[in-house]
């Protein structure tokens, strides 16, 4: 485990705690896309099914269980506990347009044509684009609470930090994972516009507002 990966994982953990904190303290899931959160449940379950047949480390298993459990808990908070605060009329991105291409990509690009590996590849592609309903919603409302932008920044930083990790692993272990690398670059790329506004506005003490 190198420092980039570790920081990436910490950033991912932090993003979930920030999101939970936002929902609990404001007692609202306003500004959060249910569709994106539901896609993360699909991503984690599809990818971490290997919990049942592969043991890597305590760290690895604990993180996988945490990501599955926390993503399900967030859905519960959004759909049941704070349901009235969720406005489905602005959360309208068609997730079929993400699921179908990801399934096709997974069937074409995988390391072995079996159920678990195709599902793994599917989860990698789906994770890359799962943020789109959220970004689409942000685009529609044109603004966001600061705490929501911190959540998105931590979530975006997580996969961005995996990129130097992959470079490091290539040089130190000779490992290359073209599927994860390609999807990871796409995933990070989707955040570029957001990061620009986050760094130039939110971190300068201004409100997150997109130009009209």
């Amino acid at each position: 485990m190198n420092i980039f990966r570790f920081l990436g994982d910490l950033s991912h953990l932090a993003s979930i705690f920030i999101l939970l904190h936002k929902i609990q303290t404001t007692r609202s899931c306003r500004g959060i896309s249910f569709r994106t959160q539901a896609l993360y449940v699909v991503v984690f379950i599809a990818r971490y099914l290997d919990l049942f047949f592969r043991y890597v480390s305590l760290y690895n298993s604990a993180m996988k269980l945490f990501f599955i459990a926390s993503s399900c808990y967030i859905l519960y908070l959004m759909k049941i506990r704070y349901r009235p605060t969720h406005d489905p009329s602005i959360d309208t991105f068609r997730v079929e347009y993400l699921l179908a291409p990801c399934l096709i990509l997974a069937l074409i690009f995988n390391y072995k044509f079996n159920f678990a590996e195709v599902l793994w590849s599917f989860s990698i592609w789906l994770e890359a684009v799962a943020i789109l309903p959220q970004l689409f919603m942000l685009q529609r409302t044109g603004e966001a609470e600061n705490i929501t932008t911190h959540y998105l920044a931590a979530l975006g930083a997580y996969r961005a930090l995996y990129i130097p990790n992959w470079i490091y692993r290539y040089f130190t272990e000779g490992l290359v994972d073209p599927i994860a690398v390609t999807a990871g670059i796409v995933q990070t790329g989707l955040y570029l516009d957001f990061f620009y506004v986050y760094f130039t506005k939110v971190l300068q003490g201004q409100k997150f507002e997109l130009p009209a």
Binding site: V56, R169, L175, V176, D177, A180
Partner: peptide, 10 residues
């Protein structure tokens, strides 16, 4: 065996 991915990443 063709390329295998590192199984330790999240």
């Amino acid at each position: 065996d063709p390329a295998v991915r590192p199984k330790d990443e999240l």
